[in-house]
Amino acid sequence: MDLTCLGIEGTAHSFGAAIVSDDGTIHSNIYSMFSPHEGGIHPREASRYHSEIGPELIGKSISTAQIDPSDIDLIAFSRGPGLGPCLRTTATMARTLALTMSIPLVGVNHCVAHIEIGCLESGFHDPVTVYVSGGNTQIIAYAGKRFRTFGETMDIAIGNMLDVLGRSLGMPFPAGPLVEKEALAGSKLQLLPYSVKGMDLSYSGMLTAAQRLWSDGAPLEEVCFSVQETAFGMLAEISERALAHTKKKELLLTGGVARNNRLTEILEGVASRHNVEFHRVSPQLAGDQGAMIAWTGIQQFQSGDSVEIADSHVLPRWRTDEQDITWRA
């Protein structure tokens, strides 16, 4: 069966549309990120951005894929978790398209999609996944028809921590890449609170200490360097704990913060110590985009999981382990 899916992502600041077919070919993957002039992301402003650029990006994903809209068999959309206004805007576009084109609609779990696109790219079958982004920090592995969260942050996500820190340091959003760049010039480590509880971790104490370090006059590169070494060291430890506990043989790094080279280097070291394979999802598939939604939507649809328009309300607090993974053994 030849199946072509339009996937639409819009859970937070990014909006994306992509055309993917059931053999795993990504024909197009167009995305754009809302960045505020100052401060953080306001959900309503981000959703307005989605409604303004969404139709154009969807059109572009179809023209770039060089297909006719009538070639699309299926619409998949990010149903949650995420910011309510953004989810609703995205869902409205998806429903409208599914209704107009009279094709099925599939509601995809955003976190599950990050894992599945990583598996598609790496060829991994059963990894321990380190999912790190602006809104999520989770260690996930598959067991008994669910992706289960073995560990996670007990307060703020790593990407959020880097953005808030960046704001204190006078950096624009998103601050992660700038923190990484500054850290390259640093070499002196300032000790910061290191907080690991089993397979969970916590970043808020470290963030406060780093902000104090900065206001006490520590050089920029030193603050960035120390934050990266400490935050990624904690992440390495809980990844190792999950690998040792689950005995799985693959380690997957995904989510927007997967673009960080120092984090990748550390997790490569972890994988080599545990004799497991490692893959970092490539930059264009690491962040939020539509290809992951389309690819997961295809697998979900093929296992008989689609949703009626009337039942397709968004799920802002949809946990990773609440989605039945019907397409995996």
Binding site: L189, E229, T230, G233, A236, E265, G269, V270, R273
Partner: peptide, 9 residues
Amino acid sequence: KPYLHPEID
């Protein structure tokens, strides 16, 4: 662990 900062390690 050679992949961690030596002082943290």
